[in-house]
Nucleic acid binder design. Structure first.
Lengths: 237, 237
DNA sequence: CTGAGCCTCGCCATTTTTGGGGAGTGCAAA
DNA sequence: TTTGCACTCCCCAAAAATGGCGAGGCTCAG
């Protein structure tokens, strides 16, 4: 049992496999003496990556019932910046309340605290602690530990990003300044005539840049090229 | 002079005007005894929001020379998740090195440490400390203070979001599932025929989604719509 | 000094996208 | 229950983008 936060962070930073990460999450749960600790990556598509102490049954249930789409935790965190205690979220929808009851039946505690984490290219993940205690106790717990938990959440996500080899397409092609400008104009919604005017070049020259950028980015069309330029971060709108 | 971090954070949390925020940033600079501290929001359009101790001359210069586009700090941080010391960034471009020299001439220190911060709807901001010390001293400083600085960065951004009421006017419009799918397909480079086949609907129906998404996103054309969907984070490629 | 990459310009034909019209079903909240 | 919104389908003509053919001047590094 790890009983110092620094040791926990060191263990986390040293983790080199998914199993290591899972152990760290379990150690976290024990360290904070709560029912569950979970880190998971969220995509529109579905769960690409995660580690936690929820039962396999609950995870299956969650996926099977497509709770991802109605879970106020996901939804709420996606739209906010700061960590949140579950009680603060919007449980007004019937489906959400049913999900909550279902969760209790599957062994989750009635209290939760979730930290949203955002990485490059729209990456989004959550780190959650869950427990079964009274409101005021949970509030006190959260107040005391928020900052530490935020650091932990950050370190967890750092590891997850490293594991997922997010930098695999690391060699984002380098576009020339004019090509970048052209992409930026298009991303801002200009058509070719407007963009050419903006850059003070002929529309044809602009086309050359767009084509060139498209080829460099390996894109099928202009929209694709702009999408790639945006999501690799080589242009910012 | 504030000399306890907790007091600094309390002051920050109590800040209710931009001037308050500016004072906190200055207090931060003094607390850490560095040359400069800066928080700023980043958009291609330009600085919408920021507070810092850089001289007005340098800020003007920065904007005037469009350094936003070549600054490796902006660039590097946009593509990474973790905080970074400036020395670790890519200064190989000539323009970047010239900018650095220029910065020194305007009173910036040779060392920097910048924390990228991401909020909902693709919001992106940076928190930077800048100083003039030897490499090893800076490294030690960074090692000792990274976690605290991350918390501060988070709190700063929380304040900034509250001020700009980002969640109010520029909250990203909600697209329907089909509209999101359509946008995603286009962002992946499909043309309308391919996307329609992918979604198993007629090309015309697909058009309806695209148009609808375009209107909701306030976009001029398809490329613009996809760009907005990507940069607000409502779709991920 | 030579090649590579960047910046600039033009024309033609074809494909794709866009901007207007409509029209009907079903679900879920007000 | 009504109202709204999401989802699905169709036609036509105009506008925009694409693909492929050129060309020359510039700078920077090998």
């Amino acid at each position: 049992m790890i009983n110092r936060l620094e040791d926990l962070l060191s263990t986390l930073q040293a983790a080199s496999t998914l199993e290591d990460l899972q152990s760290v999450i379990e150690a976290l749960r024990d360290y904070y003496n709560v029912s569950h600790a979970v880190y998971h990556w969220v995509n529109s598509v579905g769960e690409r990556f995660g580690a936690g102490t929820y039962s396999a049954e609950w995870v299956d249930r969650y996926l099977e019932k497509d709770y991802l789409r109605i879970d106020p935790v996901i939804f709420g965190c996606f739209q906010r910046f700061t960590p949140v205690s579950w009680k603060e979220l919007d449980w007004s929808s019937k489906a959400a309340r049913e999900m909550f009851q279902d969760a209790l039946a599957f062994g989750l505690g009635n209290q939760g605290f979730t930290i949203p984490i955002r990485g490059p290219n729209g990456q989004f993940a959550l780190f959650t602690l869950n427990d079964n205690v009274a409101d005021e106790d949970w509030e006190r717990f959260v107040d005391q530990n928020t900052h530490d938990l935020m650091i932990i959440a950050h370190e967890l996500n750092k590891k997850a990003l490293a594991f997922e080899k997010w930098g695999e397409e690391s060699s984002s092609p380098s576009l020339s300044p004019r090509e970048l400008s052209a992409m930026t104009c298009l991303a801002k919604g200009m058509n070719r005539a407007q963009a050419a005017a903006e850059l003070q070049i002929s529309e044809h020259t602009l086309r050359v840049y767009i084509e060139s950028a498209r080829h460099k980015l390996g894109a099928m069309n202009t929209t694709h090229a702009v999408a790639r330029a945006l999501s690799t971060g080589i242009i910012i709108v």
